[in-house]
């Protein structure tokens, strides 16, 4: 099982690197799907089959599809790729890269400084997760419901297409 974990991890990291270096949005999304799938395998190996499935359905499925929908709606053409290339110049990445590596080094230092510990090999089944969700975490579930509801309402409101889009304070006069 360990070898699967290492392979999936490697695939996830490589795919993510590919995601962040693409100029074309759709290519990036395809690599993202690969990355999510690899992470799903990692989850399965770590003993969370239910989460692995959710990862595939919601991340690789719903969220990526949503992004692709939006890209289609925006109707981006070839020039956006050129634009992306122009923005993505070599010089600009140095500073963020340095900062991010400092952060990474610090995190790794913290992670490796403790006592090494093995992971348990027991699967945690969906039933246990469900019992926990509707047991001690029921309040969190309710709040998640409210969050999703407001997400839907917000998305609907923001995504509405008006003929003339100006802020209501700036509108001249409406009949």
């Amino acid at each position: 099982m360990a070898i699967i974990f290492y392979m999936a991890s490697a695939i996830a990291v490589i795919a993510t690197v590919m995601v962040i270096t693409r100029h074309n949005l759709v290519h990036a999304l395809l690599y993202l799907v690969v990355s999510f799938l690899a992470v799903a395998i990692v989850f399965y190996v770590l003993g969370a089959p239910f989460i692995a499935v959710l990862e595939i359905i919601i991340y690789a499925g719903a969220i990526v599809v949503l992004l692709i929908f939006v890209i289609m709606m925006l109707n981006l053409r070839q020039e956006s790729v050129a634009q992306e290339k122009q923005w993505f110049s070599g010089k600009i990445i140095i500073g963020p890269l340095i900062l991010a590596s400092i952060l990474l080094v610090e995190m790794l230092y913290i992670l490796t400084s403790g006592e090494p510990a093995g992971l348990s090999e027991n699967m945690i089944e969906a039933k246990a997760v469900g019992m926990s969700l509707y047991g001690p975490y029921v309040l969190g579930v309710e709040l998640s419901g409210i969050l999703l509801m407001s997400g839907i309402v917000g998305a609907y409101h923001l995504g509405r297409q008006k003929k003339k889009v100006t802020h209501r304070f700036l509108e001249k006069k409406e009949e």
Partner: peptide
């Protein structure tokens, strides 16, 4: 057995990549 650190290292690396992006 997979060491727990390795899973966390994977999480850190992915997080940092996202941050860089």
């Amino acid at each position: 057995v997979i060491p727990a650190e390795y899973g966390l290292i994977l999480a850190s690396v992915l997080f940092t990549l996202g941050l860089v992006s």
